[in-house]
């Protein structure tokens, strides 16, 4: 931990200091409210009736219409369970692939000396720049021609090559992986794969958890690729379903729409809070390492 607890200098504790403190907290609380307010509105509106929402769209008082909204919502051709399970399969699959193989790739760069190491790292930095949309048309035509459309598999495997995760892991590893331990393991006769899996991986846990959150979230929220690769309704992921939530524009049940939005968010909240201690603790990256 870089943060060391110094005693606050006495000279700073004048009125100016308290003014600064008050400003700081007011500002932080303002940001917190700004970040939370839309969710609050969403959750509260999920309990209100259509006419209540129409006359006053913002309210902090929950309504009593949750049961009715639930009825309307389940009557729609919107299957939360399917969407959730599909999204879960894709996101966890992609997260595991991306975090495990990125760590492996980063390990190859940090722990071994090989001829094209520098060039390879430069290549990864360059690959970072290729936007996914550039490849999307080719990707679509390619997937279509090998019959990989409508396979969740097709959304998971590409995650093995995640340049930004490799970059992040490499930064962390170059600061936090002691080579001596690897060497002594080698002397004990451990194979390189065992060294990676049983020694290096556990040491990378904080960084892997942080990257897991990012990878999971970005995969869970990905709309572009699923939108063009999935056409079978049973394979739809959550974002596709949400984007079609206004499924029947001729009938507007706002309460039910808000309820649907809330349901798409709740599972993610749970996973997020499970892993949030890594957000709080923070992960130290080797910022100045060459």
């Amino acid at each position: 931990m870089a943060k060391t607890n110094y005693d606050e200098p006495k000279s700073a504790k004048g009125p100016l200091f308290y003014g600064y403190k008050v400003f700081q907290y007011v500002f932080l609380i303002f940001l917190a409210v700004m970040s939370l307010l839309p969710f609050v509105i969403m959750i509260i509106n999920a309990t209100r009736s259509r006419s209540q929402i129409e006359s006053h769209a913002i309210s902090l008082i929950p309504g009593t219409n949750l049961a009715t909204n639930w009825k309307v919502f389940t009557g729609k051709s919107f299957n939360v369970t399917t969407g959730f399970i599909n999204s879960f399969i894709v996101s966890t699959g992609a997260t595991i692939c991306s975090v495990y193989f990125s760590t492996m790739t980063a390990f190859a760069i940090v722990a071994y000396d090989w001829k094209f190491k520098k060039a390879f790292f430069a290549f990864i930095m360059a690959v970072l720049m290729i936007p996914p949309q550039v490849t999307s048309i080719g990707m679509y035509q390619f997937m279509y021609s090998i019959g990989m459309t409508n396979k969740l598999f097709a959304l998971i495997v590409p995650a093995v090559a995640a340049p930004s995760t490799v970059f992040f892991m490499r930064q962390y590893m170059s600061g936090a992986l002691p080579m001596e331990i690897l060497q002594s393991a080698r002397i004990d006769g451990a194979g390189e794969f065992r060294i990676f899996n049983q020694i290096a991986l556990p040491m990378m846990k904080p960084a892997m958890a942080t990257q897991a959150i990012f990878a999971f979230v970005s995969s869970w929220n990905n709309l572009f690729l699923p939108l063009i690769l999935l056409t079978d309704k049973k394979k739809f992921t959550m974002p596709i379903m949400v984007s079609q939530l206004n499924g029947d524009i001729y009938k507007t049940e706002y309460g039910a729409v808000y309820l649907g939005l809330t349901l798409t968010v709740l599972p993610l909240f749970v996973i997020y809070f499970l892993l949030s201690k890594y957000i709080i603790a923070g992960v130290a990256l080797g910022g100045v390492k060459e």
Binding site: T74, N79, V80, T81, T82, I85, N86, F88, I89, V90, T92, G93, T95, I96, K151, L152, F153, I156, A209, A212, D232, K234, K235, L274, L275
Partner: peptide, 30 residues
């Protein structure tokens, strides 16, 4: 939590790959 996640997703991705024959791996609420 992590190992559970890993186990689940491995299971999940296997069923996902095998969906050719079992499209109903996702319970449908209808």
């Amino acid at each position: 939590a992590l190992s559970l996640l890993a186990a689940l997703s491995l299971m999940a991705s296997f069923t996902a790959c095998g969906t050719d024959t079992t499209p109903a791996s996702t319970p449908d609420s209808t």
